[in-house]
Structure formats: structure tokens, C-alpha cells
Computed example of a mutant assay.
Amino acid sequence: MAVVVTGSSGLLGSALVRALRDEGRSVVRLVRRTPEEPDEAFWNPREGLLDPTVLEGAEAVVHLAGAGVADRRWTDDYRRELVDSRVQGTRTLATTIATLERKPGVLLSGSAIGVYGDTGEHPVEESWEPPARLRGQGGPPARGQWLADLVLAWEAEVAPAEEAGVRVVRMRTGHVLTAEGGFLGRMLPIFKLGLGAPLGSGRQYTSWISLPDWLGAVTHIMAEPEVSGPVNLTAPTPVTNAEFTKALGRALRRPTMPVAVPGFALRAGLGDLADEGVLIGQRVLPRRLLEMGYRFRHPRLDEALAAIL
């Protein structure tokens, strides 16, 4: 039986494919172009095209496809791309899985801690719900609200697979730390020049996880047949942005700037992404991972950065 992976050319997907193969597992990568390798299979999520036999009896399906949230400025067109690339892909997978006679053992569907919106200093876990959603209730949208709505719509599309009796896990991932790219990779050139600085107030919480722990958590969840629903893939020690800035400066042995980058400057450079993803605080705890016995390789930020860098 194979593990079928979408988004296999991305930062997380490519690392997962390597890790699975290192464990001796067979992997099939779903691609949106003409397949060129024996382990590739074609799909077109926008048009709902996917050969059901590719998923038939799979050990697991790991769905990681979706446009990068921080890859571009959020124009109206790119907002639609962020939504469509998640909603349409998840819908195509879930509806196809629901039709199969021999269904996959589990669907691990990518999600994000953005679902929680701005939690401020409050620690939250999988069962937490925002006290109120301001959009549509006479007030302005809450900070982080658009991303929260996006993730909720994304997660809802797994329903056909769940209703068909498939074990489904919504992997709510925080910032995955690796020097190869993503959240940390974008920061490294600036910090290596000694120009790293806190962002906004610096008091907003950052929930992170090292790449080895993200990979370990995914394979751990695969092996736990009773686990379903949302699971936070974050380390147990979220830190404030100011603490993250200091820790990264120490790890690189470089000074950091004493003055924070003000919110207005971030909004000028990043647009809506500043309020939706940079200036909000998300203090997310991995309760379910800990309950299922996962042991973190890098539970603390200093340890993670030392290992990565």
C-alpha cells in the first residue's frame, strides 16, 4: 500500500516524501502536469479530475496542496487563489475517496492554526472556539478573521470522506521552522545582517514547530488508528515575537535591532497580510499530540534553532 501525497513539490511535501521513502514506504505523488516519473499520478483539482484507482486502498492520503499564504501580496485575485487552491483540492480528494470501495486508511488533510484567529495571550487547544465572530454582526472583521474563515472553509471540505467512514485528521500546522524556506527561511538573510527586529508590539505569540517534529508528528498520527478530527502541529512552548527575535539573534550570534518595526510599516509593505498573519498572536498548544504520546525532539525554541542552524 502506498502513501499518496499532494503538494509534494512544496517545502513540507518534498520533505515528507523523503522521510516516508527513508522509512521504506511506497509513495505516490499527485501532480498537476503530465506525469514524468513512475511514482507520479495526474490530478486537476480545479476541474475535479482524479483517477480513483490512485487512491484505492492507499495506506494514507496526505493532502498538502495549496497556494502559499505569504508568497505574494494579497490582491483580490490572489485571495481567490488562496481559497480556490485549498477548497477545490480538498473537495476533489474527499469526494473521490467517498466513492471508493477500498478506501484509504486515513486522510491527513492540511490545515493551519489560522483557524483560531487572534487569540492574544490566551493559550488555546483543539477544542477552543473564538468567543465571537464579528464579521456579519455589525462590527468590523476581527484581526485574523479572513484567514480563520478561509481555514474553516478549507476544513469543511473533508466532510464527504468523513461521512463515508474514513478516518480524517485536520492537521492544524503552525510555523514550521527550517533553514530551507518558509517562516524562518525568509528571516535568516535579514538576521544574518544584524537587522532582525521585533514586529509591531512584539508581544504577539508565535506558535512554531521544527521540521523534524512536524514530520515525526505526521507519521505518528498515521500510526494512531483512533485519532481523528483536528490536531495542532505546534511545539508545546509558543513564544512572543520579541522572544523569537532574541532567540534567533542568539542562535546566529548576531545582534538584533533595539527598535521594533512599526505596524504601519508592515501594513505598507505587506498589505492585509500584516494584520492577518504577522501582527496577530496565536498561542496554540498541541494537547492532542501530547495525549497520544508524541515526544518532541525540539520542545523548546533554543533547542530547535540550534539543531536547524
Score class of each variant (00 low, 15 high):
H122V: 14
T245M: 02
V69C: 09
L50G: 07
V4Q: 00
G57R: 11
D272V: 06
H122N: 13
F42C: 09
P255S: 09
E155S: 09
T173C: 02
R25S: 14
I308L: 06
S14P: 12
S26I: 08
V124L: 04
E125V: 13
L273T: 01
R283Y: 08
P104H: 01
A65W: 00
V151L: 10
E81L: 13
D22K: 15
R25G: 01
R79M: 12
S26R: 15
G293L: 03
A268G: 15
A153M: 12
R143Y: 08
E129F: 01
P238G: 05
A242K: 13
F296L: 08
L233T: 08
A265S: 09
A161C: 11
R79F: 08
R91T: 15
A41D: 04
R91Y: 00
S127F: 07
T6A: 01
F264G: 03
G13M: 06
V106K: 06
W146D: 10
R283K: 14
V158N: 03
R186G: 12
N44K: 08
A306R: 14
V231P: 13
G144F: 05
V231Y: 10
P160T: 09
V4H: 10
T99H: 13
V17K: 01
L20A: 12
L16K: 08
R253K: 14
A65H: 05
P189N: 09
L49T: 13
P286Q: 00
S109D: 06
L301P: 07
L273S: 04
L248F: 01
L195C: 02
A242D: 14
R86Q: 02
P299Y: 04
P130A: 15
T99K: 15
Q204H: 05
R250V: 11
E291N: 13
A60I: 07
A70F: 14
E155H: 12
G10K: 01
P104L: 07
V54W: 03
R33I: 11
K246Q: 15
R102I: 06
T119P: 05
L266Y: 04
P225Q: 06
M1Y: 05
T119G: 05
A159E: 14
G249C: 08
G263T: 07
S201D: 06
L100K: 07
T234S: 13
G277C: 13
T237H: 15
F264Y: 07
N232R: 02
G10P: 00
G13T: 02
D71C: 12
R287Q: 14
R267E: 09
V278D: 05
L12I: 14
L188Y: 05
E226S: 14
R283W: 03
L50C: 08
A235F: 10
W146Q: 07
S14F: 00
A2D: 10
V17G: 09
T256R: 06
S201I: 06
G271V: 02
W74Y: 12
G194I: 12
E126M: 02
R73S: 11
R143H: 11
P160G: 10
S85E: 00
S207N: 09
Q88A: 15
A164Y: 13
T245D: 03
T53F: 04
L199Q: 14
T178I: 01
V158G: 06
V83S: 03
